[in-house]
Simulated assay, not measured.
Amino acid sequence: MKLITSINYISDINSTVFLASIKADEVLYYKYQQDKPYSLLILVDYNHNELVLEFSGKILLDKYSQLINRETIKDSLNNVNKLNICRLDIEAILQDAEVVKCDVTKDIETDINVINNTIRQNLTNYRKWTVKQYNSGIVLENVVSTPRYKKRLVIYNKGKELEKVNNINFIDSLTAKNEILSYFKGKVRFELNINTKQQIRQLLNIPNNNIQNVLNATANPILTVIDEAVKYEPQQQKAQTLRDYEHVLLLKDCDYDMVRVEAKVRALSSKNTSITRMMQPYKELYKRLQDNKTNTIDIRALVA
């Protein structure tokens, strides 16, 4: 999350840990940045009279599994104060700050491989949307030339990501690291990167970028992107020929009940027709459809 607020909401800046930019004996800005155990940027910009704060969800430490929301945002800012490098006026920031970048995330216990397979096979438009490999998961993004229209949804195995070497410092900083690792085991993270103020307003359906509006938004932007990018029709995915399609229509008409299918075939066939032979393509197609169902998933239902 990236916040911009008044420069008046920071004090007691420890100049020994902040990088200072000075021109003609005048401080232009103070900057503090760290990557471990969590990402944090503090920029005190005297030119624009702004305080810029940018941090990742890991700033929550032992509350990391709760994500940054209206209940935990104070914990995020309190953890900055606990560094004893400056003093933030938390209440003022929570009233006046603007959110200019944020990630909307949701953690779900599901099979990452099935998610990947479903999205790759069911894009609404292969020219407008691309799927790229991302570690154990994928990046789903639209093809646009203007950043304000860019939509980027990262889907990956969060448990495996936490076990990587670059997260050792974060895990070691936790007092409840076993609980955190246990919580994320088997979890798939859906992470939508929203990088412009306009997109924040549009995807969260809010009138402005005030932090309270963002934290209290009820829209589901991940679902919005899934609806736009993925079309899921599981029962027809394997209908590869016209004859298959006709068979699918009969299966669907009988609610995929093979007893009802056989009864329908008997009713529509001549007495001399071999029912065993007539039923064979329906049985084969039904098996393919069932196999397809095990390799795809209703993503919309997961993120709704």
Rank of each mutant, 00 (worst) to 15 (best):
L223N: 06
L223Q: 09
L223S: 09
L223K: 11
L223H: 07
L223M: 06
L223A: 10
T224P: 12
T224R: 13
V225R: 01
V225H: 01
V225Y: 07
I226E: 04
I226R: 00
I226W: 02
D227L: 11
D227I: 02
E228D: 15
E228L: 07
E228R: 09
E228W: 05
A229W: 03
A229M: 01
A229R: 00
V230K: 02
V230D: 03
V230Q: 00
V230M: 05
V230W: 03
V230C: 04
K231L: 14
Y232M: 01
Y232A: 01
Y232C: 05
Y232N: 06
Y232P: 00
Y232H: 07
E233H: 02
E233P: 02
E233Q: 07
E233V: 07
P234E: 05
Q235D: 06
Q235A: 07
Q235L: 14
Q236T: 10
Q236L: 14
Q236K: 11
Q236C: 08
Q236M: 13
Q236E: 11
Q237D: 10
Q237T: 10
Q237Y: 08
Q237K: 11
Q237L: 09
Q237F: 06
Q237P: 01
Q237M: 11
K238M: 13
K238R: 12
K238H: 06
K238D: 05
K238C: 08
A239S: 09
A239I: 04
A239P: 00
Q240N: 15
Q240S: 15
Q240R: 15
T241R: 02
T241W: 01
T241G: 00
T241L: 03
L242W: 10
L242D: 06
L242I: 14
L242G: 08
R243W: 11
R243L: 15
R243A: 14
R243M: 14
D244Y: 06
D244G: 05
D244P: 04
Y245W: 13
Y245K: 11
Y245C: 07
Y245N: 06
E246S: 13
E246N: 08
E246K: 10
E246I: 09
E246A: 09
E246V: 08
E246Y: 10
E246C: 11
H247P: 01
H247N: 07
H247M: 05
H247I: 04
H247S: 01
V248P: 03
V248N: 00
V248K: 02
V248F: 10
V248H: 00
V248A: 01
V248E: 02
L249C: 06
L249Y: 05
L250A: 04
L250C: 03
L250N: 02
L251C: 00
L251Y: 01
L251A: 01
L251T: 01
L251H: 05
K252F: 12
K252N: 09
K252D: 13
K252M: 09
K252Q: 09
K252T: 10
K252E: 12
D253P: 03
D253T: 07
D253N: 14
D253C: 10
D253L: 15
C254W: 07
C254R: 15
C254H: 12
D255M: 11
D255L: 12
D255N: 14
D255H: 12
D255I: 06
D255P: 00
Y256V: 03
Y256S: 04
Y256W: 15
Y256E: 03
Y256K: 09
Y256F: 15
Y256P: 02
Y256M: 08
D257G: 11
D257V: 14
D257E: 15
